[in-house]
Every structure is written in structure tokens, then in C-alpha cells.
Amino acid sequence: MTQSIRWLQDEIADRMLQKLDIVKLDVRDILVTPDYPGNHQAILAKRFPHARIHSVIEDGSSRLQLWVVKVRASWQSIFRGVKTSSIAQLYASNKFDIPDNSVDLVFSNLLLQDLTDPKLFLRECWRVLREGGLVVFSYLGPDTGKELRAMQCGALQLKNLRSPWDMHDLGDALVAERFSDPVMDMEYLTLDYKEPKLLLGDVEALKLANANSHLEAEISNLPQKLTLEVVYGHAWVLGKHLSKSQDSVAYIDVNQIGLKTRTDSH
């Protein structure tokens, strides 16, 4: 997402944090993915002042923005072991550059719609989260930009979201990846536009259509509003070290079973 939609990233992050108000969580380490760019790190540092914050930095950040994030992370890492990586690395490998069982909270804002297979992302979250950890996320659902699809205009080269999953799909995926107590909800946001070029700028920033500098002149019936379906969710990592899952069957390691003895009196 580009600078023109930065306000949306900040607004959704605020709403995600509001939803965390009722959650009790002891946080030592946080993974922010993606960080837009460094803004979320600052917000979470205020909310969790004693936590180390590891960042996956958004592509397209300016040199100054990246420098500020790197300086902040490098300064912290001298004493606290903070790590940073790029979103391009995540797209290429579907892996986070941090060890197993190393964070208590994964905070992911408006990312999943850009991933080919969100299950791989959830699998990585499970890997890096500690026992009792929490993944919190938001993403754009399949109804996003429905006004554009209704136009049936060849000049506007629409792109499908890489992951057009609704909240029920994601909820099922969380359960399949062994997360506990998933909570999903959704809301529609409507953006109104006075000028077509503003709408087209956001459409491009949201990756809903290919860039076309002449598009405004070619299309006369552009809508004056754009609907965003924003899906929110969170789920816990519980019993991580007690069981392993294979073919939908849970197997408990015999070494993890505690034995209780009883002495009968006669």
C-alpha cells in the first residue's frame, strides 16, 4: 500500500488496539508485520512500553522512513536483541526471520489479502508465538471494491485479491492450524470521493486495479464511493508443547502426561 492510504492503515491499527483493551496479555516480545513504516512500532511501544518490538518493514517506504526505523531498531537491539526484516523477504519465503517460540504477540494489519496462501502465514505465527501467545490481524475481505466490479468496464483492469477469504474461511483456517478460541468479526467502511482521481489513487494503493495514468479520461462513470470489507480476528496459542496434530488427529507425547499416584488405606 502506498502513502495515499496511510491514514487507513493507522485507523485500522487504532481499531485493532481498541479490540485488545479487553484482552489480558503479558507481552515481552511483539512481531509487527508489516510496519507502516515504523508507525505501528511507535504505537505498540506506547501500549507495551517494556516489550521488544520486531518489525517486518513495508516495501515502498522512503529512504528517510527506513532510516528512522532502522536507527530506532538498531538502538534498541544494542540492549534488547530487536530484529527487522522486509516484507519482500516474507513474500519470497513465507518465513519470519525470528526463532521458534520467540514472541508473545503477532500484530498484522492489512496484510493477509496480499498473500497467496494465508495458511502459511498462520503456520509461521504458530511457530514464532510462545505458549499463551496471541495473533491479532486485520485484512480486506472479498466484498472490498464491489462497486468497481459492478461497472463491467474493460478499461479498468481489476485485480482479484490474492486471498479472497471471508471471515469464516479464516476462522476455519485458524482452527485447522491448531489455534484456540478464534474470534472473528467484520465491518464495512464506505469511502466517498469528490474527484475521480482520488478514488483511482486509492484503488491503485489498495491493489484493486492495475495502474493507468490515462484511466480517468477513459472512464466517465466511475463510482463516487468505495466499499471496504475489513475483517478482524485474533486467536491464542494454547497447549503448544503438549500435542502434535497429524491428519486431524491430536497425538499427546507420553512424556508430557503427568502420573498421579494414590495410596489406599486398609
Rank of each mutant, 00 (worst) to 15 (best):
51 A>M: 07
71 V>S: 06
46 K>Y: 08
39 N>R: 10
53 I>R: 06
55 S>C: 05
39 N>V: 15
64 L>F: 04
57 I>K: 00
38 G>W: 11
34 P>L: 09
74 S>Y: 00
58 E>L: 06
76 Q>T: 04
65 Q>K: 04
38 G>I: 15
57 I>R: 02
68 V>A: 13
43 I>L: 15
51 A>P: 05
31 L>N: 09
37 P>T: 06
40 H>Y: 11
39 N>M: 09
58 E>N: 13
69 V>K: 08
75 W>Q: 14
63 R>C: 01
74 S>Q: 01
50 H>W: 07
55 S>G: 06
65 Q>M: 15
55 S>V: 05
50 H>L: 04
41 Q>M: 02
34 P>N: 12
78 I>C: 13
81 G>W: 03
61 S>M: 00
82 V>K: 12
62 S>P: 00
72 R>E: 12
60 G>N: 08
49 P>I: 00
40 H>N: 09
31 L>P: 04
55 S>P: 01
82 V>E: 14
66 L>E: 01
78 I>Q: 12
69 V>Q: 08
29 D>Y: 04
58 E>V: 03
63 R>D: 15
33 T>L: 01
57 I>A: 11
30 I>R: 10
64 L>E: 12
47 R>K: 13
43 I>E: 10
42 A>C: 02
36 Y>R: 04
40 H>I: 15
58 E>G: 02
57 I>N: 14
62 S>E: 04
57 I>E: 11
75 W>F: 15
54 H>W: 04
36 Y>N: 11
35 D>A: 12
78 I>Y: 15
56 V>N: 10
55 S>M: 10
60 G>E: 06
73 A>S: 10
80 R>P: 03
83 K>Q: 03
34 P>G: 14
62 S>C: 08
81 G>L: 06
38 G>P: 13
41 Q>H: 12
